[in-house]
């Protein structure tokens, strides 16, 4: 249903989407160096659905920012789709985010002035894949998440679940190698959460690689693998 084109990176023969090696991150607080991540090793293969679980303050958001190329590690290696994020420029990092990573946030992060359709199209204004008919693809993706009759609605005219569907459609617009979801059901009731997780499951079945940050143990039944993180260490892998 998602479309065969999502299998693209398999066809390229690149099986490892995320390869993290001895990742350390610390922040400066005045003169004190505060370590957040103490040497994380993590490998996510193409087509995997991985949940990163941990209590708040465990460093899972920091890890998520590293994977999402929003931040750079203090030391260690984060290799995404074969690219070392420490070795590339800010613009290349932005390009990596635009093409290879689809973000889904807890608070949806839709732009209130734009319609659902325009929100889905927003990433393509900066990066759009050659040969893509982005406007058509945006409509198809909104259909895929069941919002074909809500395309011209603004986010304020949509329910929480509908907003998250728009955000999922947006994350898929540039056909990314990886969907990075940060507590995507955190602001939703349980029934809506199930619907959203249903969509993720379906994407996964169609070959999408998904990394989801959560603190909800219920997620375990949807995912291939759970990575527990606590105090900046991975507990099992």
């Amino acid at each position: 249903m998602v479309g065969k084109d999502l299998d693209r990176s398999v066809a390229e023969g690149n099986d490892i989407v995320i390869d993290i090696c001895d990742l350390r991150k610390s922040y400066r607080l005045g003169d004190i160096e505060v370590p957040i991540l103490h040497g994380i090793d993590l490998c996510v293969k193409k087509g995997e659905f991985v949940a990163i679980m941990g209590p708040s303050g465990s460093g899972k958001s920091t890890l998520m920012n590293m994977i999402g190329c929003l931040d750079r590690p203090t030391s260690g290696k984060v290799v995404l789709m074969g690219k070392d994020t420490l070795a590339i420029s800010d613009n290349e990092l932005a390009e990596l985010r635009g093409f290879e990573i689809g973000f889904v946030f807890q608070s949806f992060n839709l732009i209130p002035r734009l319609s659902a359709y325009e929100n889905v199209l927003l990433p393509t204004y900066s990066n759009s894949r050659k040969g893509h008919n982005s406007p058509q693809r945006a409509k198809d993706l909104l259909k895929l998440v069941g919002l074909d009759d809500r395309m011209d609605h603004r986010p304020t005219e949509l329910s929480g679940g509908q907003r998250q569907r728009v955000a999922i459609a947006r994350s898929l617009i540039n056909e990314p190698s990886l969907i990075l979801a940060d507590e995507p059901t955190g602001n939703l009731d349980s029934k809506t959460s199930e619907e959203i997780l249903g969509i993720f499951s379906e994407l996964h079945r169609n070959g999408c690689t998904i990394v989801m940050i959560t603190h909800d143990p219920e997620m375990e039944k949807y995912v291939d693998r759970v990575v527990h993180i606590k105090d900046g260490y991975i507990k099992n892998n």
Binding site: D90, N91, L96, G98, F99, F105, N109, Y125, S126, N174
Partner: peptide, 16 residues
């Protein structure tokens, strides 16, 4: 500010 953060996460560069 939050919107700018979003745009950056969606792949918008500094110059964008």
């Amino acid at each position: 500010t939050k919107e700018i953060g979003l745009l950056k996460s969606l792949g918008y560069t500094r110059s964008d």
